[in-house]
Amino acid sequence: MRADARRNRERIVEAALGLFTERGAGVSMEEIAQAAGLGVGTLYRHFPDRRALIEEIAQSTLTVLRDHLRAGAAEQVPRWEVLLSMVRHCAGRPLALLSSLPEASPQSDTRQRLIREIHGLLGDIVEQAQQEGSLRRDLTPEQVVGLLNVAICRPGARADDPLTTVMLDGLKAPAP
């Protein structure tokens, strides 16, 4: 790919990331092109349709999240801190886009594999946090992952917003 074409593609993805994170999947292709400082035709040359752009962003976001969780799991820190790091990492990322993608598509195999891997890593971290006593034990790891998804997979999610704060407070194990 030519250098100018690569830069344009990066500008499109960066603009889309910002808009999708802030406003959710309802952002138009025209708004993305405008935010990138490019014409709509340039956007469509790189991404034939909206689904292709969202799919690329979703897979990229999931890959970065998986790598972040792997790194956190390898650290010798309390597991609660790894969970908080993950929440902070996810804030400001367009994870809400995942709900706008069809389950069955040529790219869904990669996306579904990444989601399964992330849920597995997160489940292990949750179990370890429960064993160390920092996370309440009356919830299954699957339930905790579900709650975390509610908190961070929505437009405008932030690590310090009221919903996330209340959810984290509720997951923290009570002091002995």
Rank of each mutant, 00 (worst) to 15 (best):
R2T: 11
A5D: 11
R6A: 13
R6D: 13
R7W: 09
N8F: 01
I12R: 10
V13G: 12
V13K: 09
V13M: 14
E14P: 07
E14S: 14
L17P: 11
G18I: 09
G18N: 08
E22C: 01
G24W: 00
A25K: 11
G26V: 12
G26I: 14
S28T: 15
I32F: 02
A33M: 07
A35Q: 05
L38C: 03
T42Q: 05
L43V: 01
R45S: 05
F47G: 11
D49C: 05
D49E: 08
A52H: 07
A52L: 08
I54P: 08
I54C: 14
E56M: 15
A58R: 10
Q59K: 02
S60I: 15
V64K: 11
V64I: 11
L65S: 06
R66F: 00
R66E: 07
L69A: 06
R70V: 12
R70S: 08
A71N: 14
G72A: 02
A74P: 15
Q76L: 14
Q76I: 13
V77Q: 13
V77T: 15
P78H: 10
P78M: 09
P78G: 13
W80G: 04
V82W: 04
M86V: 01
V87N: 05
V87C: 02
V87E: 07
V87L: 05
R88T: 09
R88E: 10
R88F: 04
H89S: 07
C90A: 11
G92L: 04
R93Y: 01
R93D: 01
P94G: 02
L97Q: 07
L98I: 05
S99N: 12
S99T: 12
S99Y: 09
P102F: 01
S105A: 09
T110R: 05
Q112T: 15
R113T: 15
I115D: 11
R116A: 12
I118D: 06
H119W: 02
L122Y: 03
L122C: 08
D124C: 11
I125V: 07
A129I: 11
Q130M: 12
Q130F: 09
Q131A: 14
E132S: 06
R136A: 08
R137P: 02
Q143S: 14
V144G: 11
V144T: 13
V145G: 00
G146M: 14
L148G: 08
L148D: 12
C153L: 15
P155H: 09
A157L: 02
A157F: 00
R158M: 09
A159P: 06
D160C: 08
D160T: 10
T165G: 05
T165Y: 01
V166K: 08
M167C: 02
M167R: 03
M167D: 02
L168H: 03
D169M: 06
G170L: 10
K172F: 01
K172G: 02
A173Y: 00
A173P: 00
A173Q: 00
P174D: 13
A175N: 13
A175L: 14
P176F: 03
